[in-house]
């Protein structure tokens, strides 16, 4: 599509080829009981929550923001749904309730950023720290296990492909559609590139910023439901731990700059898949899986090196005016 997608795409292809060389069966897909299995499917399934959260993060970052609280929000979503189920509630109500709570949390973040004008990184740090506490408060510090067929579908179900993949793709498609079919995408970029010019053109920046934080929180909520559904439990401490970092990384690898402006949903998808494939690759080539983090660090550094010449954020400095 464009140059910015080149590097993430190349990285992904390189990883896939590496896998193919090490384990020739990597690309094999089998159908059993009408379900599709294979390493590639696993990559997609395990990466689904990251993809979701990274999508929300992409829009937030496009407005010059960042949302550190998504991991905690994911944990809260799982906690709300599971405690509702454990209390004898119905799965659908539980999930709707969870997403409603997430929307409120998104509104809170948006309020701090758009209305109070607090730096996004700090504003969302509050919920990042307090959110885990809230999740633990809901589960009373226990790992709440549930056994519900409907709820299990979200993370572990299959409709040919794992349901988690389908949900992520649906959200991706939905966002792509909404940002293209409405003016949301353009207005997000316009606010991200030049907030003052946008204000003078009559753009309601506040509404836009609020929208993206709510959207990010909803994505985090769905991801949280997936994570807890996958293990049939809500683990307030560990669900979605560091997923915000993976998501930010995915966005950056995907070519969206942390300084806001032009974003690429496709790039983010590629970024998230690269990270997930990396994790899988490390596993398949026989390195202890725990060393994945070292490789992730290497990827960040390489990406930064590649982006450095053109994508370097300019330090705080008044814009230079030619002439005058």
């Amino acid at each position: 599509m464009n140059r910015r997608l080149l590097w993430p795409a190349l990285a992904l292809v390189a990883l896939l080829v590496l896998n193919l060389v090490v384990t020739p069966s990597f690309f094999e897909l089998r159908i059993r009981d009408g379900h599709l299995f294979g390493s590639l499917v696993d990559v997609l399934r395990n990466g689904a929550p990251t993809v979701l959260i990274a999508l929300g993060m992409t829009l937030v970052i496009a407005t010059r923001g960042i949302d550190l609280s998504v991991g905690a929000v994911a944990a809260i979503a799982g906690a709300v749904a599971c405690t509702h189920l454990a209390g004898g509630g119905d799965a659908v109500t539980g999930m709707v309730l969870a997403l409603l709570v997430c929307a409120v949390l998104g509104l809170w973040n948006g309020f701090l950023v758009a209305v109070l004008g607090i730096q996004p990184i700090i504003a969302t740090l509050v919920l990042m720290i307090a959110g885990r506490g809230v999740a633990m408060l809901l589960t009373e510090g226990q790992i709440v296990t549930v056994d519900d067929d409907v709820f299990r579908q979200v993370g572990a179900g299959f409709v040919v492909l794992p349901v988690a993949i389908l949900i992520s793709l649906a959200v991706l498609g939905g966002v792509a559609l909404v940002t293209r079919r409405t003016a949301l995408g353009m207005l997000i970029e316009s606010v991200g590139v030049n907030p003052e010019a946008s204000r003078l053109a009559g753009v309601r920046a506040r509404t836009i910023i609020w929208t993206v934080y709510v959207f990010a929180a909803l994505c985090a909520g769905i991801a949280g439901l997936m994570i807890s559904s996958n293990v049939n439990a809500a683990d307030a401490n560990n669900a979605g731990l560091w997923i915000e970092m993976d998501a930010i990384l995915a966005v950056v690898i995907g070519g969206t700059l942390l300084t806001g402006g032009r974003y690429s949903l496709l790039g983010t998808l590629l970024g998230a898949l690269t990270i997930q494939t990396l994790t899988t690759t490390v596993y398949t080539i026989g390195v202890p899986p725990t060393a994945t983090l070292v490789f992730k660090a290497a990827v960040v550094i390489v990406v930064c090196l590649l982006q450095a010449p053109r994508g370097a954020p300019v330090p705080r400095r008044e814009p230079e005016v030619v002439g005058s």
Binding site: I129, A130, G133, V134, M136, G141
Partner: peptide, 10 residues
């Protein structure tokens, strides 16, 4: 419970 620590810090 201990989780109040996090909430209070927040």
């Amino acid at each position: 419970s201990s989780w109040w620590t996090k909430i209070v810090i927040g």
